[in-house]
Design a protein around this nucleic acid. Sequence first.
DNA 1: GAGCACTGC
Length: 692
Amino acid sequence: MSRFRNVDFTPAAPVLKQDIGKDDLSAEAYDGLRTASVSSEFERASIKMQREMLPIFRYRDSILYLIETSQVVVLIGHTGSGKSTQLTQYLYEAGWTNKEKSIACTQPRRLAATSVAARVAAELGCELGDTVGYSIRFEDVTSRKTRIKYMTDGMLLREILIDPLLSHYSVIVIDEVHERSTYTDILLCVLKRIIMRRRELRLIISSATLQADELVNFFGNGTKIISIEGKMYPVDMLYLTEPAENYIDKTIETILKIHTSEPPGDILAFLTGRDEIAQVVQELHDRKLSLPTLDNDMLILALYAGLSQESQREVFDPTPENTRKIIISTNIAEASVTIDGIVYVIDCGFVKIRSYDPRLRIDSLVVTPISRASSIQRAGRAGRTRSGKCFCLYTELGASQLSESTVPEIQRTNLAGPLLQIKALGIENIARLDMVSPPPIELVSSALDLLYNLSALDDYAKLTKPLGERLAEIPLDPMLGKILLQSQSYNCINQMLTITAMMSVENVFIFPDHNHHAADEQHEKFIVNEGDHLSLFNVYQAFTVRGKQSSKWAHDRYLNYRALSQAVSIRRQLSRYLSKLGLNVPPALAADVVNVRTETVVKCIVSGFFPNAAKMQPDGSFRLVNVGDGDPEKSVVWVHPSSVMFTRKAEWVIYSQIVQMGEKTYINGITKIERDWLLEAAPNFYQITKER
DNA sequence: GAGCACTGC
């Protein structure tokens, strides 16, 4: 058994991120949003006291002074400083919302926006949507009275489309900047232009890492920095003396070692994916049986985003008496989900990262070494309630070789949607965008290319009218948006509203571990040979008409009620967008739903997804039509087992998702088409594409 | 033939 060497790790080290339980998926957040109406004097006094105990309180006057005197302030706030909830309240109390102005505070995640807003509303003793509100896609809980508005970063970007100088706001707070979401990066770029034209507007950049220099350089010399410590307990960092051969085995070994030789305290182990987690959970269950009865008290839980809501909730249940809770998790527990009571962290040192290959137009999921910022953040998960230990499954030398931070998302993602928005903001010269981390030129040109092929941009890379302009208004991926907008001329608006809504939610079909056969049998009733899009359409129709949107109906048929309800809400919102754009939306269940030919619906889908075409090979795999030459083996893809086409045949198909994992590339969201429909939908595009 | 990190508009 290899040994760990002890290296001191104290709060003085750059401890990263987030305030306790507020911007995370905490137990409270799972219970839904509660705006405790604070009534009694006693409760008010208690809240005041709690607020004053937060580390940020000492800096209240300094922060307000800096904001008064400089236009941009970079605020470095460590874990548990209270910045997400307090900053906006300080500004509010100091009068920054007088003269009908408001304060905006952006978050990279919806849950953070809603739960922090709920908390702040409670602290101010108001109803959510009153003085304090939030705005996320498809949900706006604000009113004319709202002065503090929490929102996702993407929503603020959308507001700039309507109000280019953000004239409603006196202060903009961009929170969690260190996470560097694509929308955060674009916001920073656009806000830099806005503050030049609105000298009275204030900007607070809130980040948990010490990469402030980069931000100061970006915004210029007048930028001030203030750093606030957090509430953290010390965490001992333990490294391997020699590299691990297999981090899965090492994880199991380390868990058992902690369990049998360390004092009580829950364990959180980071791995990269579902398979690895299942493997470790299984092995631990097996090994548990051979442990002495005294040690036979492990509660082993898996945690990853694909789990059902109920299973995810289980990790928050209090640990039973004399039991050690052991959570085996993906990166979801690094920032999105916060579990209290963790004393031991095991960090495998890797993460699965998605990156987009602009030449092949394929997303890849690759296991990659984590960054130093990540390793510190993971370790910090052990020091939230008391001092803890982090077992790093790599050597100290390995740790020193980690890159400083993760490559920002904007440098490894498909930029078609974001660029369309930037165009809609009237920014023409995209090649010379002033960004903190500019994306590689290949990503930009491939996105422009796609937008051009969709006819959203013209020969001069200007937004087309009305298609390009409308596409930018619709909060969907450009290809999905296109089929929705084209539905007018195909006379199938209702079908496309349903299909785009259903394509916007995940995991509609539930595949239980045990009743697999029963589930398949139920699902089969909705499935048609045309493929995923039309099968999902059938599910939606049945759920809303025969099923009357009942959860029991959905549950009995192994359908995800939450996803279906989301689809109903998204469909309603999309329908409003279409009306706003001047399209005439016929009532649902009108004649067009009944009378339109399937072929017409599929042709409409082809009008947006024609670049994603594939042809079946004799061995059952598919060959992509449009990947760059010279890489024929990379154009071979397989149907993902969760697609309805997995058990069906089609010569030509279009797909809506493509992901490379390890040796294989999978397509999903598949519909059977005729080859001629491609030429019909995009004659120019297919003229220049060689047939394979 | 057999499986997907995490977000977001």
